[in-house]
C-alpha cells in the first residue's frame, strides 16, 4: 500500500493540528487488550492485542549453569518468531531480520540490573541458576510491533511463576535440587522496573506515538525508546532516515512521558487481574 500525496498531506496537517485521522492526539494510544495465563504448558504467558497487532508470549523456565563471568546471575533469553500467519512477507526467512532486531532490542532493554534483576534467578552460585526462555510469537502484524511486544513480554513476566526450591544438596560436583511438591508453591518475578518500549515517529515537524500503517508511511524517521521507571534502558533508531539532534531530544522527551503513562496503565490493569477470571482461548 502506498499513499498518494493528498492523503499524506491530510495526515501531516492532522498531526500538526494535534488531531489525527482517527481522533487521537499525538500522544494517544489505540485501545489495548490483554490477557494472561493462557498457555497451560508455560510458566507464564500473555496475549496482547493492539489494533490489528496480536502478540502471544510464553515463558518457559529451565535449570542452567550460570555464566562463569557472572556466577551470581540467572539468564534470560528472548526468541521472536514472525509467523507467516501474520503476513505472507514473513514466509521463509522473510521475518528473520525483524525477529533478530526485536529480540536484540529486548535483550538490550532487559540487560541492566536496574531493569530486571537476574540475581534473583540464581539458585547456587556458579553452579545452578534459572534460565528464562521468553518466546514471542507474532500472530498478526498491524504496525507498532515494538510497543506491543514489550508490553506483552512484561505482562507474561508478571504472570510467570518460578518454582520454589526447598533445599539444595551438594555432593561433590553433583548438585541436587529439591523442588517443592506443591505446584502452587512458587515465586512471582519482580517486574516493576521492566521496560516498556515506545516507538516515536516523526511526521512533519511533530512526533507521534503508536502510528498506524498509514502514518508509518508518512514518517521521516523513528526511534524506539525503552523506558524503565523514568530512565531509558535502550534507545535505538529504526528504519531509514536521520534526525536532527534537536528533534531527537524532543522525541526522547515525548517517549519518556508516554512510556511512563503506558507503564502505569499496564501495571494497573495487571494488578487487577484475578486468578478466577475466565481467560483463555477455550477455557
Amino acid at each position: 500500500m502506498s499513499l498518494c500525496d493528498a492523503e499524506k498531506t491530510f495526515i501531516l496537517h492532522g498531526v500538526a493540528e494535534n488531531f489525527r485521522s482517527d481522533g487521537r492526539d499525538r500522544e494517544g494510544y489505540r485501545p489495548i487488550e490483554i490477557e494472561t495465563d493462557i498457555v497451560q504448558h508455560a510458566f507464564g504467558s500473555a496475549r496482547l492485542r493492539l489494533a490489528n497487532t496480536d502478540i502471544l508470549v510464553a515463558v518457559k523456565i529451565e535449570v542452567d549453569t550460570p555464566l562463569p563471568e557472572r556466577p551470581f546471575e540467572g539468564k534470560i533469553e528472548f526468541f521472536v518468531d514472525c509467523s507467516a500467519n501474520a503476513t505472507p512477507d514473513f514466509e521463509g526467512r522473510g521475518g528473520e531480520t525483524l525477529a533478530i532486531e526485536l529480540s536484540n532490542i529486548l535483550a538490550s532493554a532487559y540487560k541492566s540490573p536496574k531493569t530486571f534483576n537476574l540475581k534473583k534467578l540464581c539458585i547456587l552460585k556458579g553452579k545452578k541458576c534459572w534460565k528464562l526462555y521468553v518466546d514471542i510469537l507474532i500472530l498478526e502484524c498491524g504496525g507498532n510491533l515494538f510497543d506491543a511486544v514489550s508490553l506483552a513480554v512484561k505482562a507474561a513476566l508478571f504472570n510467570t511463576k518460578v518454582p520454589l526450591i526447598k533445599s539444595v544438596n551438594i555432593d561433590g560436583d553433583n548438585v541436587e535440587l529439591d523442588v517443592s511438591d506443591n505446584v502452587f508453591d512458587c515465586e512471582r518475578l519482580d517486574v516493576t522496573n521492566a521496560p516498556v518500549m515506545v516507538t516515536v515517529c516523526k511526521i512533519g515537524d511533530n512526533c507521534v506515538v503508536d502510528p498506524n500503517l498509514a502514518e508509518e508511511q508518512c514518517s521521516v524517521g523513528s526511534i524506539v525508546v525503552a523506558i524503565s521507571q523514568e530512565y531509558f534502558s535502550t534507545v535505538t533508531s529504526i528504519g531509514i532516515g536521520s534526525l536532527h539532534a534537536q528533534t531527537l531530544c524532543s522525541s526522547l522527551e515525548l517517549g519518556q512521558k508516554v512510556g511512563i503513562r503506558l507503564n502505569e496503565a499496564l501495571m494497573d490493569t495487571l494488578s487487577h487481574i484475578t486468578s478466577d477470571q475466565d481467560f483463555g482461548f477455550l477455557k
Binding site: 485501545p31 489495548i32 490483554i34 503513562r261 503506558l262 490493569t269
Partner: peptide, 14 residues
C-alpha cells in the same frame, strides 16, 4: 490534558 491510555483485560465472555 492528553488522552487516557486504555489497557483492558480480555475475558472469554467479552
Amino acid at each position: 490534558m492528553s488522552q487516557k491510555i486504555h489497557i483492558r483485560t480480555a475475558s472469554a465472555s467479552s
